[in-house]
Amino acid sequence: MLKITDLSARVAGKDILKGVNLEVGAGEVHAIMGPNGSGKSTLAQVLAGREDYEITGGTVTFDGQDLLAMRAEERARAGFFLGFQYPVEIPGVNNVYLLKAALNAKRRAAGEPEVDAYEFLALIRQKMKIMQMSEAFLTRGVNEGFSGGEKKRNEVLQMLVLEPKLAVLDETDSGLDIDALKVVSAGVNTLRDPKRAVVLVTHYQRLLDYIAPDRVHVLSGGRILKSGDASLAQELERRGYDWVSESQVA
């Protein structure tokens, strides 16, 4: 599904990613953990196609295609989805219109007809129910005036509507109370199937109580320093990230 080989990237003259290797297979859920500033969001944004980041080396293939050669919108239409750590507010652009445009862009790219208005509304209502979002979100601007938790729910809602092959969720759990965490986790879990994959970027073990990962990686200083199964997350929770860096040096 996703194969990252020796990926390096820099921004504003600063090397952030320094040779990332990661392979995610279909049907898998991976977690990427790591201290603040280690490059997790940079990795997520680079994968999504943000142009501010300069790729200085390496390759990424997604579903057999050269991901780095595609523009951001092409990646999205090919089934890549990024759940932003800080979803931006876009006042004046209606939340639902954006979703509809996104879905139609994807359908057009796949040679499918555009969704009709009635069908779309039914779809979005169903997904909003899963995310326990009120109808009020239908009429508001994209993330406009949403609380932190509401923004995260909205990210997952978009993911559910777009049904990506690969979703990278960047700290979608941060700032959520336990009830919201359960809702968001339930949303993500509905997308788990043998043909899709999810990469969770997170600081906290607690998300992984609800979404069991197949693999856990520690990203630090722009590299994956350690990988393991779900038990690695628990160990990190107990021993902190310093343990990884130290054991790596040792």
Binding site: G49, A72, R77, F84, A101, A102
Partner: peptide
């Protein structure tokens, strides 16, 4: 804002 929309597949 622009990148957010592109990342959702919009032209």
């Amino acid at each position: 804002m622009l990148f957010y929309m592109l990342s959702r597949g919009l032209d």
